[in-house]
Design a binder for these strands. Sequence first.
DNA 1: ATGAAAGCGCTAACAC
DNA 2: GTGTTAGCGCTTTCAT
Lengths: 332, 332
Amino acid sequence: MGVSHRKPVTMKDVAAHAGVSAATVSRALSGGRSMNPAVRDRVQAAARDLGYQINLLGRALRQQRLNIVGLMVPDLDNPFFAALAEQLARTLRSHGFELLVSSAAGSVEVEAQGVQSFLGQQIHSLVIIPCDEVESAATLRLAQQRVTVVQFDRRVATVDVPFVGGDNAAGMELIAAHVRATGVSESEVAFFGADPHSSSGRERWEGFHRAFPNSPQFSGAFDIDWGYQAVTELLSRGTKTGTIVAAADVIALGAISGLHAAGMNVPGDFRVVGFDGVGIASFALPKLTTVRQPVEKMSDAIRLLIGAEPGSATPAETLLQPEFVLGESSPE
Amino acid sequence: MGVSHRKPVTMKDVAAHAGVSAATVSRALSGGRSMNPAVRDRVQAAARDLGYQINLLGRALRQQRLNIVGLMVPDLDNPFFAALAEQLARTLRSHGFELLVSSAAGSVEVEAQGVQSFLGQQIHSLVIIPCDEVESAATLRLAQQRVTVVQFDRRVATVDVPFVGGDNAAGMELIAAHVRATGVSESEVAFFGADPHSSSGRERWEGFHRAFPNSPQFSGAFDIDWGYQAVTELLSRGTKTGTIVAAADVIALGAISGLHAAGMNVPGDFRVVGFDGVGIASFALPKLTTVRQPVEKMSDAIRLLIGAEPGSATPAETLLQPEFVLGESSPE
DNA sequence: ATGAAAGCGCTAACAC
DNA sequence: GTGTTAGCGCTTTCAT
């Protein structure tokens, strides 16, 4: 093991090998300018012979931009964010962009550092799912001075950066309508909320609260452990039956797991409703009743913002409608 | 909307503002060289005043490398890969590296393109979960000519690139021992295999085959849909009961979902065993019996390889032992 | 301890 | 249609 690395082949090497100038190599390999086909072929052959690979740094330094879009996510362990990343990567790739993903590990400091690094690399634009609707503001402002920025799924309201995401209020209304249709009373519903410092966490909380102002509400994080733990809190109040509305599918999954561990049956004893409907979480058993975020439409909307001319008019907000999905965790 | 972007502040600007040369700015901001503290403070103040952010491309072009590690994964939707990415990002961050993730979307072509792009960006090193144990070879060879490369979780055997991953054979032995201990006969066990063109898919298949050479085996992909579909195939053979060993947790999850849809009970009618034990899939209900891959140890091993001097002796293979986890999908 | 100057690899303006 | 030249932002000799 321990192979030493070959000195990179540069354009100058290819130029010498093909008997032309570096500029001609550049044109032959990437330029769209007209040129002698014979020369072009000779250059391409030389590049192949020598195993030439372009140094994108050189190009980017000269052109003042790299054809790469950066995506900053709070946490890749959350399957909703992972699904967003995968979908966005595919959408952007089909439009000539490459996506690189960085995780903030749930920390605004790491988020800030990652964005700084993206900016330092002269990325074309930045898509960010902000960690915190207050503390991420500085990072967003900084980024916006340098590149096109799009907030995705979560937003910082105090900053003038376009947003693409699902309509959390509408999603909660769909859920509330379903819960009401099942005939449960307000006192029998509980909300397992997520991070209230994120806009999605807060908006879903508010949406629930608007529909069921007197129901118990618990606040935690966007992860499975919190759902499990929240069940413990709920059961310790002596609750033996009811409906649980979770702020995310992962929380719902944890809740179902916790209920199961406590000997409860879903949907027999408790009905559980999730939020997101994307990625592996919604496939758990019993299959989740949830609202599905339109991930493809979200990615398309982002692509439009990214592709737009800087300075051109773009919507400040693209709110997409979720779709109700009836599963088995909350049958009618 | 549509803010136009400020012209970036360069070192020259900072130098002029502080009344020093660009070289001094460089030393004051990043250099470890000794210098007049008063001058250093003045430069740092100037940088702050002007909102200077370093252009990493300029630095990298000069230094011939960027302090970034690239991770190429086959697919971020697979929660095992997402968990690996998240863990590796954390491990590397605590050792001064930054991790950027790119998804191959399951395609060797996209994989090749993504690796090319990483190399073009002069990344410090590349960690790759190869898509295909044959067709990814060229990409690996190419990458190894330029940077330190580590194969992760999956490997291409025909290439001399160090590998870090779980011991799939040992994992399958743990599973086989468990299945045997539950007293099921060979004819009652079925294997839901994954992509046979990946080393992990093949090795788990072989491990199962060694233990149960006469059991039925189905081959598909590393995703939930395949697990669901495989159940259909199994049931169409008239099977009414038995044990299903899946090559991955996501497949097991799909299988459980399919069994459920077909009116079957787990573990009553069918017992299901998974593989990976990491990320959200293993939390599904009924809680999966699986073998857990030691993701943290894997990340540490990778960090050691990446941090090693190029040319120094490093292990060609780091095989880590999975741990049996008894869940509820296959009780004794 | 600091400055001047060269140069990393590439492309775009300009000249021929 | 192709070569020459300049320069993107940074670091690193080499002088001073």
